[in-house]
């Protein structure tokens, strides 16, 4: 099954089984079925609960809070992650504040689904990964599964069981990817996925070794990192593993703890800007938990410039396999 189908099936199952679930956003009804076609077929099947909105991100995000207070389970699709900035006041000053500010008299179990990431040539305002920016909003959960997870199942559990305000980040290049399981994973790699509500996928290029390299990342970066794991193996026979938590905020160091002990090199890779990024938070959290002493720690993220439309220039700005290989080889080769 493809990543996009998994999410579509997850939405279908939610709408089919839970009448309080609604799904709305820009351009998502049939026949168009959403800019990335995730919702295709759903408005035909559930015409009363899947609908199109005007281009009014602030209002549609804000309204979800009122719906949630009326015991609905709204799922809002924001077409491009970049557009979440238009709803940041609602996320920052409204949705994430209500439950706590009102002394837990209300709950706002809202899910904001949005497509993040570059490498599609969409240029500066349609290519960003704003997880790091959004993660600075207190109380906002950020979920960003990869194709090594079961994104549809995670989405269902997030909508049904997690009462926090959630941004569910879908990396654009993941949509056509086949979901990977321990049986289908690329030759040379092994996969282990935890059974948590928000599982951590653990991808490794060695079966029994204690790898000297641990890469912590999330979402679509997995596409880059599966190649890095193979390259490390083929170029240098370096054993490495990659930890991909499905929920990146709150970040739980306990999910990583058992993977980190043998690592000499710890890298955090994200497509958000490196400066003040998620990587900084992860490194600081792990360090405070006493897990990084004596290790070589690096962050890799995008540069401090807008994301160019040109493919060649975009490669310079976003994290690349070559950049990661170079960082590792400087220490270990």
């Amino acid at each position: 099954m493809k990543f996009i189908e998994s999410i579509r099936n997850g939405l279908d199952s939610l709408l089919g089984n839970y009448p309080e679930v609604v799904l709305y956003g820009e351009d998502l009804i049939d026949p168009y079925g959403g800019a990335f076609k995730v919702t295709k077929g759903l408005s035909t099947k559930y015409p009363d609960r899947v609908w199109n909105t005007p281009i009014s991100e602030a209002a549609i995000i804000g309204m979800s809070a009122g719906m949630a207070m009326c015991k609905m389970k709204p799922i809002v699709e924001i077409m491009f992650g970049d557009f979440t900035s238009l709803g940041v006041d609602q996320l920052l000053n409204h949705l994430t504040k209500y439950a706590w500010m009102y002394n837990n008299q209300v709950e706002t179990p809202v899910t904001i689904r949005t497509a993040m990431g570059g490498r599609r040539g969409y240029g500066p305002t349609h290519s960003q990964s704003l997880e790091a920016l959004l993660s600075t909003i207190p109380g906002l959960s950020i979920i960003a599964p990869s194709h090594y997870h079961d994104p549809g199942r995670i989405l269902q559990q997030a909508v049904l069981e997690d009462s926090s305000v959630k941004v569910f980040s879908e990396y654009k290049l993941l949509y056509p990817q086949e979901l990977q399981t321990p049986n289908t994973v690329k030759s040379g790699l092994t996969l282990d996925v935890s059974s948590d509500v928000y599982p951590i996928a653990h991808l490794s290029n060695c079966e029994f070794d204690n790898p000297e390299i641990l890469i912590i990342s999330y979402g679509g970066n997995a596409l880059l990192l599966e190649q890095v794991l193979l390259d490390l193996l083929i170029e240098y026979e370096l054993s490495a593993q990659c930890a991909l938590p499905a929920r990146i905020k709150p970040f739980d160091p306990l999910q990583i703890q058992h993977l980190i002990s043998e690592a000499q090199v710890v890298l955090v890779v994200e497509e958000s800007p490196k400066c003040h990024g998620w990587g900084a938070e992860v490194v600081a959290t792990l360090s405070e938990a006493g897990l990084l002493s004596g290790k070589n720690v690096f962050r890799i993220g995008s540069a401090e410039t807008p994301i160019p439309s040109s493919m060649a220039q975009e490669e310079q700005v976003l994290p690349s396999a070559a950049q990661i290989m170079e960082t590792i080889s400087q220490i270990l080769v």
Partner: peptide, 17 residues
Amino acid sequence: GGILPLAAGLAYGAKFN
């Protein structure tokens, strides 16, 4: 102004339910 979407959402919920 941020409360307008909240109110509209509540109105939506009332209508929906």
